[in-house]
Design a protein around this nucleic acid. Sequence first.
RNA 1: GGCGCCGUACCCAAGUGGUUAAGGGAGCAGUCUGCAAAACUGCGAUGCAGCGGUUCGACCCCGCUCGGCGCCUCCA
Length: 492
Amino acid sequence: MLSIYNTLTGKKEPFHSLQPKTVRMYVCGVTVYDYCHIGHARSALVFDVIRRYLEFSDYQVEFVKNFTDVDDKIIKRANERGVSCETITAEFIEAYYQDMGKLGVRRATNEPKATEHMAEIIELVSSLIQKGLAYPVDGDVYFQVEKYRDYGRLSKRKLEDLQAGARVDVDERKRHPMDFALWKGSKPGEPSWESPWGPGRPGWHIECSAMAMRHLGETFDIHGGGMDLIFPHHENEIAQSCGATGKEFARYWIHNGFVQINQEKMSKSLGNFFTIREIFEKSKWPEDETGEMLRYFLLGTHYRSPLDFSDKSIEEAKTALNGFYDLLVKRLAEPEERTTADKGLMEAIERCRAAFREAMDDDLNTSVAIAELQRLKSDVNKLLSLGLSTEARKIARSEFRSLGASLGLLQLDAWQFVDKPRSGGVAVGLTDSEGRGMVSELSDEQIEQQIAERLDAKKKKNFAQADEIRKSLASRGIVIEDKPDGTSRWKR
RNA sequence: GGCGCCGUACCCAAGUGGUUAAGGGAGCAGUCUGCAAAACUGCGAUGCAGCGGUUCGACCCCGCUCGGCGCCUCCA
């Protein structure tokens, strides 16, 4: 039974979907005016994993993630560049897909844009005015927070407390300083849509309410986003949505913790951020491996805890991943007739499966889930030396694959090599390599040739020459491992 | 000023009112090996920021102190 920490109640709660076997969830996406940084990556990844795990648990998931494509910052960027807002948003939506794709973040089942939901937004604002929860002023429309009883319920704040520390500009036209814009009258040169209050554009919060309700209904299961969205964004969404429908909006509110740099929140305003593409560009590893390293690193900490980003932590993820992929390759390279430990494998798998589920069921404890995968890795390595049949190896492989899939890990092509050995050698793809660029200069055949020469030298006890060849290959990123039977395997 | 979070070994990071405080990385020692590499085995917090309290018993509950962070404005 899955239980999830619900920001709304401040507790871990058993998860029950509204409709059996179906989960409807909405996650706040990004405002598309710039490249995404690792913080965005973490958020996207967390909800990607929640979605994957729900599917792994036999739910059908209707997953809606929006793009905010009308916003001050977009307008600003468009003006700076002298292009249209559409040009900007199209560019960064494309970049988003590229970056998240590299991280293995699957696309949501629905990815709506604010600009495509003006009718729903205007309708929602109108109904709030009708209900006396909002008021128009000079082409703007504001939500009147004092009229909504439960304002502050999500962020656990009282209106008075908010006011005391408020750093918002005093606007004479607002009835209460915390009243927020549902609709903004447009200034000349800004994108605008016709409305009962004149030409304008929606405020930030209303678009999410409108899109969520349009695609998931008035009440749905999960609403997620980064912790910084709790206030005011999600608080306002609740006020608008519940205010308009009189019904509950989202039932479970899930928020992920921040990525930090040296213990400080990573953010645009602090300037201490790394973009996703920057990390891929700087990485000395191939793209899919870098993606998985990042993913492993980001899932190594519980999703609600802060997470410090550093090069070192990424490298550590690499080392840990090597262990997994190396195991898969090993199983391939050494086919086996014996079945001595087959039974032990089944027990190990059963144990792992149960522990893995238990961990994930406990508020998505990916740290423990990964630890269980590690334990299985260790178990299998031990059993392997006792003797696992080819069939058993296949079973173990698919177990790693299926458990890994719910985290989006261990899905790399390297895995496929298990079925297709490459001329005696094995390309692992995850190894330490200096001068990776030179690797491609050596074909598999050339490498095999070198290895044959080395084995020959070894047979003649000419270890100096054998070591020389090994060294030479190593300098080109080829690592040789001698097997007990006198042959060698290699990897890049 | 208000609301909230965190402080676990060299590093990262789970966790529980009471059996050995997960797992990974690094390190050291050993098995294997011509030597390596990989794998395996062993070692590694008598203690979970500090001080009090509750309790038969606390790292886990309560209070205080110190240190770090977040939100209250746009923010994943």
